[in-house]
Computed example of a mutant assay.
Amino acid sequence: MRAKFGIDAPGVVRTLALLGVALGVLAWPVFALLRAAWGGAAAVAVSAGLALTALTLLTQSVWMVYSSLVAKHRLWHRTLDGLALRGDERVLEVGPGRGAVLLRAARHVPRGHLVGVDLWRAQDQSGNGRAALLANARAAGVADRVEVLDGDMRDLPFPAAEFDLALAGLAIHNLPAGERARAVGELLRVVRPGGRVVILDFEGTAGYADALRQGGADAVHTSARHWSMHPPVRLVTATAPAARP
């Protein structure tokens, strides 16, 4: 059995693809109608605009699929590899979905324990659900080291300093803007002194970095945009403080 991680934001991908196809199909009859009514120049201008818009939408949908299936995995592999983990860490991910990031982290901590906490919203990932994550964990041979809980990232059911590493990938932006700092604060709270927080997202990253600084985190860093994914993303990394404020 092979792990299957689905597509992120499937509704958005589907809408972009359907609109792209519809506008592409519409371009030719619009050209024919406008050519008869307004002449060739106007018909070419309007139909070309429709065709270009269609191509843009289709490109975005394909890019998002590539992001889910390829680019996200590569970026997280490089990111986790760069943390120089010991291999026995306790790792938390909020919003793990079907486990693409959490199970990749499992490869970097072969003696560690991993916990995923999610509300499992179908609009965030195709086939989203705790059963899908656990099935993928079994397929990857790491089910004995993976724990899955229902829960809200704004109110994590763990004591302080429970984990060595806390991850959030394309998850925090789903919260209302006013609630995101609370979720970031929870990630920092449950990480032990000297532990790491890593957040990947396409919006709100400046606010995440500010929330980490306000929480007393050290070495807060926001990366440049990574254009291999669509929408382009940034990574926010930080180290939990040795002494809590």
Results as ranks from 00 to 15, higher is better:
L19K: 02
G11K: 03
D152C: 01
E147Q: 15
A41N: 08
G95V: 01
D88P: 00
F163I: 08
D210I: 05
G207A: 05
A105Q: 04
L23C: 05
F5Y: 15
N174F: 05
G207P: 00
W38K: 08
V117C: 10
A139H: 08
A43Q: 06
W120E: 12
R234K: 03
G6K: 08
G24Q: 04
E186R: 02
V236C: 00
A143L: 04
I199L: 13
A48I: 02
A166V: 03
A105L: 06
L16C: 02
L133T: 08
A171R: 05
A48D: 04
V117L: 11
G40T: 15
R154V: 10
N174G: 14
V44I: 11
A181Q: 03
P245L: 08
R145Y: 04
S126W: 06
L92I: 08
L19H: 06
T79M: 14
W28H: 09
V236K: 01
A135Y: 04
A105N: 02
R130A: 15
A181V: 07
S68N: 02
R244I: 02
G87R: 11
R189Q: 01
V21E: 07
T59C: 03
D81Y: 10
R189I: 03
D218Q: 13
R14Q: 08
L26I: 08
A217N: 05
A181S: 14
T56H: 11
